Simulated assay, not measured.
Amino acid sequence: MSVEIRPIEDEDHGAVHRLLTDRWTGPEILLDGQMVDASRLPGYVAIAGPELAGLVTVIKRPGEWEILTLDSLSRWAGTGTLLLDAVVKEAREAGIKRLTVRTSNDNLDAFRFYQRRDFRIERIAPGVIDKERSQKPEIPMRGDYGIPIHDEVLFARTL
Rank of each mutant, 00 (worst) to 15 (best):
E4T: 14
R6L: 00
P7M: 09
P7E: 08
E9P: 05
D10N: 13
D10V: 06
H13V: 06
A15E: 13
A15D: 11
V16P: 09
V16I: 14
H17M: 08
R18Q: 14
R18H: 13
L19I: 14
T21K: 14
D22S: 11
D22M: 08
R23T: 05
W24L: 06
P27K: 05
P27E: 05
E28H: 11
E28G: 10
I29L: 06
I29N: 05
I29E: 09
L30G: 06
L31W: 13
D32M: 07
Q34K: 15
Q34P: 09
M35F: 15
A38E: 03
S39A: 15
R40K: 15
L41V: 02
G43A: 10
V45N: 03
I47P: 08
E51I: 00
V56T: 11
V58L: 03
I59G: 11
R61S: 13
R61L: 12
G63A: 04
G63F: 01
E64G: 02
E66W: 03
L68S: 11
T69L: 01
T69N: 14
D71C: 13
S72W: 06
L73I: 06
L73G: 07
S74Y: 09
S74Q: 15
S74T: 14
S74K: 14
R75C: 06
W76V: 07
W76I: 05
W76E: 15
T79L: 00
G80A: 13
T81F: 00
T81S: 14
T81Q: 15
L82T: 04
L84M: 15
A86L: 13
V88P: 10
K89L: 04
E90W: 05
E90A: 06
A91K: 08
A91V: 02
R92H: 02
E93H: 10
A94N: 14
G95F: 05
R98A: 07
R98C: 10
R98Y: 02
R98N: 05
L99G: 13
T100D: 03
V101D: 01
V101C: 09
T103M: 03
D106L: 05
D106I: 00
N107W: 01
L108H: 13
D109P: 15
A110L: 04
A110E: 06
F111E: 00
F111P: 05
R112A: 11
F113T: 02
F113H: 03
Y114E: 10
D118A: 12
F119Y: 12
R120H: 14
E122Q: 11
R123M: 09
I124H: 07
I124Q: 08
I124D: 07
I124G: 04
A125F: 09
V128P: 03
I129F: 00
I129R: 03
E132T: 00
Q135V: 01
P137E: 03
P137D: 07
E138T: 12
P140N: 05
M141N: 04
G143T: 09
I147Q: 12
P148H: 08
P148K: 08
H150V: 02
E152N: 04
V153Y: 03
L154P: 00
L154V: 12
A156V: 05
A156M: 04
A156D: 04
T158D: 13
L159E: 09
L159P: 13
